[in-house]
Design a binder for these strands. Sequence first.
DNA 1: GGTATTCATGTTATATTATCACATTCCTAT
DNA 2: ATAGGAATGTGATAATATAACATGAATACC
Lengths: 174, 174
Amino acid sequence: MNTPKDAVQPGGEPVAQARAFSSHDHTLCSGHALALAEEMAQERNLRLTPVRRRALEILLEAHRAIGAYEVLERLSEEGFGKQPPVAYRALDFLVDHGFAHRIRRLNAFVACGHPGEDHAPIFLICRDCNAVAEAEGGPVRNALDAAGAAVGFVVERASIEAVGQCPSCASVAA
Amino acid sequence: MNTPKDAVQPGGEPVAQARAFSSHDHTLCSGHALALAEEMAQERNLRLTPVRRRALEILLEAHRAIGAYEVLERLSEEGFGKQPPVAYRALDFLVDHGFAHRIRRLNAFVACGHPGEDHAPIFLICRDCNAVAEAEGGPVRNALDAAGAAVGFVVERASIEAVGQCPSCASVAA
DNA sequence: GGTATTCATGTTATATTATCACATTCCTAT
DNA sequence: ATAGGAATGTGATAATATAACATGAATACC
């Protein structure tokens, strides 16, 4: 077996920091999070099949937001299918069941930092290093629900994504 | 000259309602909004060239979120360029200067309902009719800024998009 | 255990969205 | 008038995503 964990990045583009701003949420770390996901799947009677499981691992190992085609590349290297639907289906499953999130602004996916917990995530995207942090968005979501209610709109799902500067890039810039 | 205003929709897909939920914001209505945009452009020394102006008109007339290629089709019918960059450049200009917004969830663009005013829009997208309403998101944005600040992140721009059910679809469903 | 049903995977093909690179034209400011 | 920058146009291609259908695996039911 190869060691995709150590694979280098292809391009020379700025690469996102490996960890979220401020503190590193170890929930995300591959082993633990994966075990957690297994448990959850069991409880909820979800089928965390090999492709799905591996797709989640890939997101966890990357520890940043990555595109479907990048996930696909890794999956296919490991003997899974080579065609886009393979990746999209696995990722859709993960997103649908709260194991991962889709970052629309980046056309990318990121492992969920709090799988299982019922939460209202918001995403903070650094314009410099491209890191994506998942933050607690309860209050934001409440405000959004209220804004919707004010015009008779019932919010079911939301994507709340902010672009700005993360602390470490801000300090470098200064 | 042809009458693109009356052009029928191509597909048979559900088409978004022509107006925002609850009340129809006439600021959006083509003539007035366009005049307003002209004024603004003058004040700010922006070049609202023919393609850009027409692209804005197209968004205003559509009165819903439409994709870049749909805008392009209309532009090209009217003698502007036929290649994607023509539409993307015009739309980017409009978005950059606050004449329009990009709805990431739909890969689409919509005319701004409050051009010129400094505002924090949020978008309410009906899952049934696909209508997009631009709502006031001041409080939501404040909550988002606060959430960012809590982890040292400075929010510069945000996309806040909610998917749910609009009042009229809710009443039809009931 | 057998079998019907559903769900999951894989494939080919194609649709949709977006950008690159470069030539030309137009505006504006000297 | 003319140099510089901005805007437009083109062809080409990249990047993202879905459709449609065949095969195979898990599950449920008897």
